[in-house]
Amino acid sequence: MLSVSHLTCQRGERVLFRDLSFALPAGQWLQVAGANGAGKTSLLRILAGLSEPAAGQVTWNGQGLRKDRAAFHADLLYLGHQGALKEELTPLENLALSLGMEGFPPDEAKVTEALHRFGLQGREMLPARYLSAGQRRRVLLSRLLLRPAPLWILDEPFTALDVHAVATLCQLIENHLAAGGSAILTSHQTFSLPAGLSVTL
């Protein structure tokens, strides 16, 4: 369970949000809503332990995020709005290398299967620079299939996706929740997921 208490986020002199508290139990998902520049990405980065809040604290299963980084990171899958793709590598290489750096033995068959699931047949060996924005996003999302993690934090996961990919992703998130996982996401698109929690900044 992720719990957030009295969180304040400040960027420069501007306070983005103040005194934010909520808890996300296992099997639930949370949508972070708010206008552009309201601090959605800043909140997600704090929840992922990348930035430090100006005040307040975040705990995962009762522990501060920086107490045991390795344990928290093993439970966390964070996909930012940057692609986290190397242009000069193929999707296959990209995923295999990042899995390797996260300490999972890269299994080529599994990676290929994940890419297929997101409709990237025939693109496995193409350098990522030749991929469209939507295809890049799908490569990034394939990571959800490759590494088990109870907590997903997804920044604008639906951006640039077509209807099929949106449906695939929703299906994935539903399965994840059914298996007792939890997810936090931001989005400006419409998508269909079972009712979840929401926070508006």
Partner: peptide, 19 residues
């Protein structure tokens, strides 16, 4: 840093320092 892979390394369960 630009393409976000550094962020992923920082969030890796493996030691960031060793990476």
């Amino acid at each position: 840093h630009q393409d976000g892979t550094l962020e992923q390394m920082a969030l890796s369960p493996q030691s960031f320092t060793l990476l």
